Amino acid sequence: MRMLINTPETVVADALRGMAVAHPELRVDVENRVVVRRDAPVAGRVGIVSGGGSGHEPLHGGFVGPGMLTAACPGAVFTSPVPDQMVRAALAADSGEGVLFIVKNYTGDVLNFDMAAELAEEEGVRLAKVLVDDDVAVTDSLFTAGRRGTGATLFVEKIAGAAAEAGAPLEEVAAIARRVNESSRSFGVALSSVTTPAKGTPNFDLPDGELELGIGIHGEPGRERRPMMTSREIADAAVTAVVEDRPPTGPVLVLVNGMGATPLLELYGFAAEVSRGLAERRVEVARTLVGNYVTSLDMAGCSVTLCQVDEESLRLWDAPVQTAALRWGR
């Protein structure tokens, strides 16, 4: 196993210690595994909390900061955080205006966030929850009942975070987050398997010269396995899948996301093919974001997420954000 780690047992704690060193603008509780923006709770503002298994960085801890998440709770690699983490995050984020939980649709995450919501409400926190389920590849998977939550999580966290930063009340922030999720669709492709530190070997077998269409961010099976395709062919398959599932009737945000081991040289080339494919289908692109944002450790591959936007959601997308992984505006 060739990984830049000490031991599998300490990999998340070690990463959090490093995050604390690199980002003093965050409060990083290594022992309790909670990442909070330093000025939280922000008076008069709704708190935004998300989390999930580690291994998808920069999701979620890399998106904590002004204009996005108030707090995040990282679980073990590919494992949901526990309710106690989520309650700590909610308490740290709550200014008295309520807290929104943003939850990717994986069984463990859903169950634990539901339990945390009950516990936090007992502590006096007013809560709302939004489920992200944007992946069009499969209806059910090894980890979910229903569609998986993937790249649209970034759109939901950014746009809801901007609404909260602007002072919107909890009910409005939650409604905006739900609209973003409902307007988003994603499709992923794996060019290699993923290796978790605990296992030390690939999670699944993907022979040389083959790829998996519709893969999940934990290495879950997709729609089908095919011989290796060109960037153009992969882009056409991904764009077709998302556009056919929800044909856009207005401009879209585009996320061209790397799965962790795909270099930007390839991702930018792939983004050009996605742009071509959307133009051929007469889909208007409002903004495009390219990079490794919702990853799967060392998996080579990519995903495409489209989110149809209106004037309000585009304004919130463009609003300033200052996090470890996403920064623009002032």
Results as ranks from 00 to 15, higher is better:
residue 127 L to N: 13
residue 144 T to P: 02
residue 25 E to A: 04
residue 317 W to F: 04
residue 221 P to V: 12
residue 219 G to S: 08
residue 192 S to I: 10
residue 182 E to R: 15
residue 176 I to P: 08
residue 173 V to Y: 05
residue 10 T to D: 13
residue 313 S to T: 15
residue 175 A to K: 01
residue 2 R to Y: 12
residue 102 I to R: 05
residue 315 R to S: 12
residue 191 L to Y: 09
residue 203 N to C: 14
residue 268 Y to N: 13
residue 314 L to D: 09
residue 251 P to Q: 12
residue 212 E to S: 07
residue 216 G to C: 06
residue 188 G to A: 09
residue 92 A to N: 02
residue 303 S to A: 11
residue 110 V to N: 04
residue 284 E to M: 07
residue 138 V to W: 13
residue 266 E to D: 06
residue 274 V to F: 05
residue 205 D to S: 14
residue 120 A to S: 11
residue 217 I to S: 12
residue 175 A to W: 01
residue 264 L to R: 14
residue 140 D to A: 01
residue 184 S to Y: 06
residue 50 S to V: 06
residue 107 T to F: 00
residue 92 A to H: 05
residue 128 A to N: 05
residue 255 L to Y: 05
residue 30 V to A: 03
residue 286 A to P: 06
residue 2 R to K: 15
residue 285 V to Y: 07
residue 230 T to G: 02
residue 121 E to T: 12
residue 1 M to Q: 12
residue 20 A to G: 05
residue 223 R to L: 08
residue 41 P to I: 07
residue 73 C to A: 15
residue 213 L to C: 02
residue 81 P to S: 11
residue 268 Y to E: 08
residue 173 V to F: 08
residue 278 L to D: 00
residue 134 D to C: 02
residue 104 K to P: 00
residue 215 I to Y: 08
residue 200 G to I: 08
residue 36 V to Y: 00
residue 186 S to F: 04
residue 296 S to V: 05
residue 326 L to N: 01
residue 249 T to W: 03
residue 84 D to S: 15
residue 105 N to P: 01
residue 150 T to E: 13
residue 282 R to W: 04
residue 130 V to C: 04
residue 310 D to R: 15
residue 229 M to Q: 05
residue 166 A to Q: 11
residue 40 A to E: 03
residue 139 T to P: 02
residue 150 T to H: 10
residue 55 G to K: 03
residue 225 R to P: 03
residue 224 E to H: 09
residue 54 S to H: 00
residue 145 A to W: 14
residue 172 E to V: 15
residue 175 A to H: 00
residue 148 R to N: 01
residue 36 V to A: 01
residue 119 L to I: 11
residue 128 A to W: 07
residue 206 L to G: 08
residue 219 G to N: 11
residue 272 A to D: 06
residue 274 V to D: 10
residue 329 G to H: 10
residue 159 I to C: 02
residue 46 V to I: 12
residue 241 A to K: 01
residue 197 P to F: 10
residue 280 E to K: 09
residue 218 H to N: 10
residue 268 Y to W: 12
residue 315 R to W: 09
residue 158 K to T: 09
residue 169 P to K: 00
residue 306 L to T: 03
residue 119 L to C: 09
residue 74 P to V: 04
